[in-house]
């Protein structure tokens, strides 16, 4: 199954917070990812920077539009 198909499948099957294995994307404070990694919890750290040139209103709008 492709990654995309698997994602769709997961959502469609209603896998929920308590039933899915915890695999974390950490967006923000580095230390949270580091600590999860130390506990062998799968985690990806996003190298985040303020989107839309730091314009929060524009960033919110872009997120709504799905970009």
């Amino acid at each position: 199954m492709s990654a995309e198909a698997r994602d769709k499948d997961q959502v469609a099957n209603g896998g929920n917070l308590l039933s899915r294995p915890v695999k974390v994307v950490n967006i923000g404070l580095d230390r949270f990812a580091k600590e999860l990694d130390e506990q062998s919890v799968p985690v990806v750290q996003v190298e985040w920077a303020p989107p839309a040139g730091g314009n929060a209103k524009l960033a919110a709008l872009l997120a709504k539009l799905g970009s």
């Binding site: 994602d7 915890v22 990812a33 990806v44």
Partner: peptide, 25 residues
Amino acid sequence: SAGAAWRPRTLRAAKAQMPDLSVAL
């Protein structure tokens, strides 16, 4: 951190790296 030398810059890229992500912190 997280043992990765390369870090994705977006959630979309993070999902490409780990497709079965379950929680965003």
